[in-house]
């Protein structure tokens, strides 16, 4: 009891996934990776500002904001941006 009373309360935040919400719903265009054309060069993962592309080149669509840098920088054009409402 006394321990808890003496604890100093600080306005500190804890690191957590999704601290800024599920940013994937900001997206207008969804990146789709064509695994057959992809030659696993890693350029998309290197340039992704939010680091949502993993080592197997799967894009985390919960958090991907759809900026399109990966599709623009891909030397093989293996990533295409589809409008979010479309079926593909």
């Amino acid at each position: 009891m006394s321990n808890q009373m003496n604890r100093v309360r600080l306005a500190m935040s804890t690191p957590r996934d999704g601290a800024c919400g599920k940013t994937g719903n900001w997206r207008t265009f969804r990146p789709v990776v064509d695994k057959e054309t992809c030659n696993a060069c890693g350029i998309c993962a290197m340039y992704c500002p939010d680091g949502v592309i993993d080592e197997e080149y799967n894009i985390d669509l919960i958090y991907c904001k759809g900026c399109g840098i990966c599709a623009n920088e891909c030397p093989k054009q293996a990533i295409i941006m589809n409008r979010e409402a479309s079926d593909e």
């Binding site: 800024c20 940013t23 500002p49 680091g51 985390d60 904001k65």
Partner: peptide, 28 residues
């Protein structure tokens, strides 16, 4: 590329604008 560690110190996801280069710089 191999010399750069894969650990990310930014959790998913910052509230940066789409295409923001500041969060890209901070990652590295």
């Amino acid at each position: 590329m191999s010399s750069i560690p894969t650990t990310e110190y930014l959790k998913k996801c910052t509230s940066a604008c789409p295409g923001c280069s500041s969060s890209l710089i901070l990652r590295y």
